[in-house]
Every structure is written in structure tokens, then in C-alpha cells.
Design a protein around this nucleic acid. Structure first.
Lengths: 221, 221
DNA sequence: GGAAAGGCGTGACTTTTGTCACGGCGGAGG
DNA sequence: CCTCCGCCGTGACAAAAGTCACGCCTTTCC
């Protein structure tokens, strides 16, 4: 039969590297495979933490919402990444709301199982440390951007980064705004301005970079 | 003789809890005690990471600086906390500049020694995990504030938090601005406004909270 | 194919934040 | 005691960001 098995997903992912066969086997029994449609909510900020997730397929977005309905994207998790490790570790409330950005397949561990794994398997603990370190860098840089850079600088930076990482997926301006910490209209206007300057070419749902050098200058990279 | 010894500082700090005597002894030989005056720079953003520090006494501030000379405080480290663990873990550049906010005593570990300790002593790895988790929460909340709250909301929140934690130490408005992600003048004006409303009483270098309830409303807590 | 929903561009504001420039005040150090 | 220097308050702007309100396109879905 070709029912997908947990081991198929786990094996070969650096996150679980260093675990011995028997341990992989343990892990396999703990994890539950979960398939989700787009725009499904996995956890709401403030809720009690019961699970840690590992992304097998698809993309998950972590967001904060303000009273006024504004959203700030804090991060995106791609295949191979885990999330909700922080609340699992300190047993605090979920720090962010998470929802699927695309259809997704996840592995779910109970908080207890996750903690047990991490405590019992030092190599996994080191993996978690590295993951958190990387995420701290992302957050630190987000703080820097929000506090010390203007929207147009952030936007230019974002366009360059998206181009580099060859993200070809379309993105709405509302979504860009949520990542940049501003609102749709401001994004639209800044894009228009970049286009007037001849730095980019805005098409339906995609943006072509004409003058990366100018963008780099604008982003002050 | 009463030369201060590293063990005196290390023993009893939760960070090193769970280490056995022999391991504490190892650790003692690795660490170098370092005393610093106020406003001394420990590391500059972007530099190579060579050391991890553990605060024994005093307070250390982590900041980012913009091209225009603005500063954003990312965090403060108090006795019992360690810093520069992230760059030690991933061997990347220092993510922030650190300087002493007061006279301070620190323990310095070489990056290699620190990594060795963490890898060899799982309980210490767990401590580091918990520390990073806590710091992720701080950063996450900072992002939320910067992105979704106005300066006056952030200021009200800060006043309440300072009052709660009974921080009696004076703080300049310039410093408050650096923590809030704005500039001195804006802080001054907001304070004046709070005072006009009768919510606070501003004295020389200290601020008395008169109507915490109103501040809470302003902070939308 | 027609209606509805959502994405986009833009004008016309308002509000918030930041900048510059003073002048006053008070503590630290000669 | 006097002088400097750094903190503070504030006015007068400038600039950036956000809000509201349209109307026009697509795309989707009956």
C-alpha cells in the first residue's frame, strides 16, 4: 500500500538528523500527519500550547493582529521547519497566530512528546537551538527594519530579497503590507513611485525588477 | 585571600544549575572575569563572534544603530543572563552592538568553550533553550509594538512596566526614545500630554504615575 | 454571460512622527 | 561660585504614514 508514512517525511530532514533508528521509530509513533487546506488556522495567539508542528509540505504564516485589524507577519515556515517550539519550551501562551498560506501537510507532536524528545536527544536539542538562533536573527532584523527604516526602504529590500530567493509566487499588495508593517495603499503608492523612476515594472500580480542597483541604493543595503 | 573567584559567581545561578561539580570546575577554568566601566562597548554589530558573556553584575544593553544615528534598544541583560549566544551558535556576525549601561562584571567564555559546554552538558543546552525562548518572546512583543502600536501606546505601556518592576533608576528621555523606537522630542511631548491629562506627574528625572487605569486604557492592555 | 468579490490605483485629506532650533535649568567639576 | 554640558520643554515646520472614498479591472462562480 502507499499510504504516506511518517518516516518517509522525517528521514533525511536535517532537523531529525543525528537521531538513531530506534529513536526515529519512537518519533514516528508520536507524530500525527495532518493535511490542511489554504487559510486554515492552526493556533490563535494567546491560546494554550498543546502541540508543536513540523512542516512537511506547504507554507505556514505567523502573524500578529492589532485591535484595528492590521496584521503583521512575523515569519513564514517552509518544509523542514518546525514552529511553536517557544511556547512548548516555556509553557506560555502562543505568541502568534498561525495559518496555512497554502495547502499544507504537517507533522503534529504533542507538547509533552516534543519536550521529551528534546530532553532525551541532545542532537535534536542542538537542532532546535540552531533553529531558534536563526529565527532570532530574522526577528532582530525585522525590529531593525520597523524601527529604523522607512516603508520605501523596506519595500525595496523586500523586492530584492524576493527576487534573489526566486520566489515566483504571486503576492497581493495587502500581503506585502502585512509583511512590511504598513497598509495596502502605502505599498501601492511606493510601487507606483518605483515604477515612475523606472526601477521596476509592475504587471498583473508580478513585479519585474529593472534596475536592481537603484533598489539597492534605496534600500541602503 | 578574598580575590573573587569565578565559582563564587557561577554557583547558585540557575543558568548553570544541573552541572556537576567536576563540570563546574571545568567551567571555572574557562571563564575569565572582566570588570567594566559604564558605557564600554563589548562588541560591534557585524563583528565576528569570539566570546559569549555571562552577566555577573550590572546591566548590558543591546542596540542597533541606523545610518542617521538613531538607536533602537533590542534588550537589556541583567545579572544571571548570558548574551551573544546566537552568533556563537551559528557563527554569524554579531547581530547587535552591546555596551554596558552601568559598571559591570562579566564572565567571558570563548565561543569554542561555550559551544563545547553546551554540547557536552545537555542540562545547560536546555537552559540556553529556555533563555532563547524568553528572548524570542521579548523580540516578538517588540515587533508587535513597533508595528501595531503608536508611540503614546508604547510609552504608556513602558511607564506601567517600569512601575511594576519597581525600576527606580532614573532614565533619560533620549534613552526612553531609544527603547520605544522614536526620538527624544516625541517622548517629551507625549509625557507632557500625559501630564496635562493628569495621568502622571513629571519630576526631575522621575515620573510618578497618578492614574494607572488611564495609562492602561491608553496602552490598550 | 452576468453578478459579485477582491485586487489595484489614486485623489484628498488627517494624523502621526520626525526635524530644527531655541532657551531654560541643574548638576558636575574646576 | 561659576561655567559647561547634557537634559528638557516647546514652537514651527516638513515629511511620512495612514484613512476614506472612489472607480476600474480581473477572476470566479453561478
Amino acid at each position: 500500500m502507499n499510504v504516506p508514512r511518517v518516516t518517509d517525511y522525517v528521514r533525511g530532514h536535517p532537523f531529525f538528523e543525528g537521531l538513531k533508528e530506534a529513536q526515529l521509530h519512537d518519533l514516528t509513533r508520536m507524530a500525527a500527519l495532518q493535511k490542511l487546506d489554504e487559510e486554515q488556522i492552526l493556533g490563535l495567539e494567546g491560546d494554550r500550547c498543546t502541540s508543536v508542528y513540523f512542516v512537511v509540505e506547504g507554507r505556514i504564516r505567523a502573524i500578529k493582529m492589532s485591535a484595528g485589524g492590521r496584521k503583521q507577519v512575523l515569519g513564514e515556515f517552509e518544509p523542514g521547519e518546525a514552529f511553536y517550539m517557544v511556547p512548548a519550551l516555556d509553557d506560555g501562551p502562543l505568541p502568534v497566530t498561525t495559518r496555512t498560506a497554502t495547502r499544507a501537510t504537517l507533522l503534529r507532536f504533542s507538547r509533552q512528546d516534543f519536550l521529551g524528545l528534546v530532553e532525551r536527544h541532545p542532537p535534536l536539542a542542538m537542532q532546535v537551538l540552531n533553529t531558534l538562533a536563526q529565527r532570532m536573527r530574522r526577528l532582530t532584523s525585522l525590529v531593525e527594519d520597523l524601527s529604523l527604516r522607512s516603508v520605501s526602504e523596506r519595500l525595496a529590500k523586500m523586492l530584492l530579497e524576493r527576487a534573489e530567493s526566486a520566489r515566483t509566487q504571486r503576492i497581493t499588495q495587502r500581503e506585502m503590507a502585512a509583511q512590511l508593517g504598513t497598509v495596502r495603499e502605502v505599498v501601492a503608492r511606493n510601487l507606483s513611485q518605483f515604477q515612475e523612476q523606472g526601477w521596476i515594472e509592475v504587471h498583473r500580480g508580478s513585479i519585474e525588477i529593472i534596475d536592481p542597483q537603484a533598489l539597492r541604493r534605496e534600500a541602503a543595503i
